[in-house]
């Protein structure tokens, strides 16, 4: 959890806007540090968290969260965190074992054209089972949160952009609107620019569709001037809903540097290495 980012987004573990759909995106850069931020933020906020991790193993996320001061293993044991480890699940779908009782969530791997209904069913059961864990003194958790890292992997696995948008729509409908929780999704764009429509149409279309759905975007880009040791890139924060002061869309640009145990955000040109 990066406190500087919290103050930019006006959130704390104790008070955050509910019903928000946050879109994290990157173009030729890496926004995964933001996923770790939101994961640790919502775990500290005592939310019921469902994490769909398609990119890395559980140990990877666990190690990073440990550095940010949150234990994923404990959260999992307490029933606060439901973790879908995409890599393991896909293995059990592709190489079925006889005594396998794996979930149906990754069924789309066999036939991508059926859509992501089963993955949605997994998310729905994870976020709806709040406080129904049984009588062993399970704790009450806050509003549910869904994190997906990342949606572009689904495109690579053969799912169409439209099916991914359907999935994100259903997730938004149940988590944000019905249960007043939050959704955080990461999407990657490898295209050169926004006008580039030729070879990478799927991810562009996915990103635009998600932008229409979401209420807050954090778009990570590399510096336009190239690599720099002291500034790792820039984040464009864009609020798309009606804010308190009546403005509809508000944009702010920050540069950032990721440290070992955190990240610093500053206005463009005010890096401590420059001043």
């Amino acid at each position: 959890m990066y406190t500087e980012l919290n103050s930019i987004l006006n959130t704390t573990p104790d008070s955050f806007t509910q019903g928000e759909f946050v879109l994290l995106s990157d173009r030729q850069s890496d926004a995964s540090f933001l996923i770790h931020h939101f994961l640790s933020l919502y775990l500290r906020a005592r939310c019921k968290v469902c994490f769909v991790g398609l990119v890395q193993s559980f140990n990877h996320y666990s190690a990073i969260s440990q550095r940010l001061g949150v234990s994923l293993t404990q959260a999992k044991e307490k029933g606060q965190l439901v973790f879908l480890e995409g890599q393991k699940e896909s293995l059990s779908v592709l190489i079925p074992q006889e005594n396998d009782t794996g979930s149906q969530a990754m069924d789309f791997l066999r036939d991508p054209s059926v859509g992501l209904k089963n993955l949605y069913e997994f998310v729905r059961s994870a976020v709806s089972s709040n406080g129904e864990e049984g009588g062993d003194g399970s704790e009450e958790w806050g509003p549910p949160v869904l994190l997906v890292d990342d949606l572009s992997v689904l495109l690579s696995l053969g799912v169409s952009a439209g099916a991914v948008l359907d999935f994100s729509h259903y997730c938004r409908a149940i988590v944000c609107s019905q249960l007043q929780g939050n959704v955080v999704m990461l999407v990657r764009c490898d295209g050169e620019g926004e006008e580039d429509e030729g070879d990478d149409e799927g991810s562009e279309r996915l990103m635009k569709g998600l932008t229409h759905q979401c209420s807050l975007t954090l778009h990570v880009q590399g510096l336009p001037t190239g690599y720099c040791r002291d500034i790792h890139g820039q984040v464009e924060v864009c609020w798309r809903r009606r804010q308190g002061d009546g403005q509809y869309t508000q944009k702010k640009l920050f540069q950032y540097k990721v440290h070992d145990k955190g990240a610093s955000f500053f206005a463009p040109g005010t890096s401590s290495a420059v001043l």
Partner: peptide, 8 residues
Amino acid sequence: AYTDPLGW
């Protein structure tokens, strides 16, 4: 048509 547009 928001909660369930595809009949899931």
